[in-house]
């Protein structure tokens, strides 16, 4: 699709967007004492959802119980006195991520609308139908959910944050994820024609 006068505006230069993203990450280091993240918010929301429906079930599963314990610690100090504590301190690690991801939803939406890029629909190549594309997105999501929890983070919390902080695990994750991605890419090439 080519951008017309009233159509969607083209995307930013990747290096400009990347430096902007890097400054956001740096601001997070400076003002929150931590990096960005995404999968941890999924973990916390999923754990809270299970706990609301079946508390015993959630408590019996260590990965979910871990997120719930994180939240319980936060609830112990709902409004820590301001002043001494650094800005992000009263939020638990996963609570911080949930709030941050709510911000991502707002920021992403605002950016898309203001650039004329908010368009309801399904992004797909010509080689795949709508229902197949949605199934692929969901199946890929399942694999990423398991993979991110096993790896202790995703592209945001592990690759970007850990990459910039020179954590070995982040670089192992980057190499493994992109390596596997390129091995698997020919299998889905037809979908993106």
């Amino acid at each position: 699709m080519t951008p017309g006068a009233s159509g969607p505006r083209p995307y930013a230069d990747p290096y400009v967007a990347g430096v902007g993203l890097g400054l956001v990450l740096l601001a997070s280091f400076v003002f929150a004492g931590r990096g960005l993240g995404a999968s941890g918010a999924f973990g916390r929301v999923a754990a809270e959802t299970v706990a609301a429906v079946a508390p015993e079930h959630a408590a019996a599963r260590p990965p979910l119980a871990g997120y719930l314990a994180d939240g319980a610690a936060q609830n112990g100090s709902p409004d820590a006195p301001s002043g001494a504590a650094p800005p992000g301190a009263p939020l638990s690690p996963s609570g911080w991520l949930v709030v941050e991801m709510l911000g991502v939803l707002v920021g992403g939406f605002a950016s898309a609308v203001l650039a004329g890029r908010f368009r309801p629909g399904v992004t797909r190549g010509e080689g795949v139908g709508v229902s197949s594309r949605l199934s692929m997105a969901a199946a890929g999501g399942v694999a990423m959910g398991v993979g991110a929890l096993l790896a202790r983070g995703c592209t945001s919390g592990l690759a970007l944050t850990g990459g910039a902080l020179l954590a070995p695990g982040a670089w192992i994750f980057i190499a493994s994820a992109f390596g596997a991605g390129y091995v698997a890419a020919p299998l889905v090439r037809g979908a993106w024609r």
């Binding site: 939803l105 890929g140 694999a143 990423m144 790896a151 945001s156 192992i172 390596g179 596997a180 991605g181």
Partner: peptide, 25 residues
């Protein structure tokens, strides 16, 4: 865990065409 989780994540990334943060966007 990061080798194995990364590989699974990478396959999911390619199949979905999105990652956790970008899927929200």
């Amino acid at each position: 865990a990061q080798l194995a989780g990364g590989a699974l994540f990478g396959v999911g990334f390619v199949v979905a065409g999105l990652c956790p943060g970008t899927s929200c966007v």
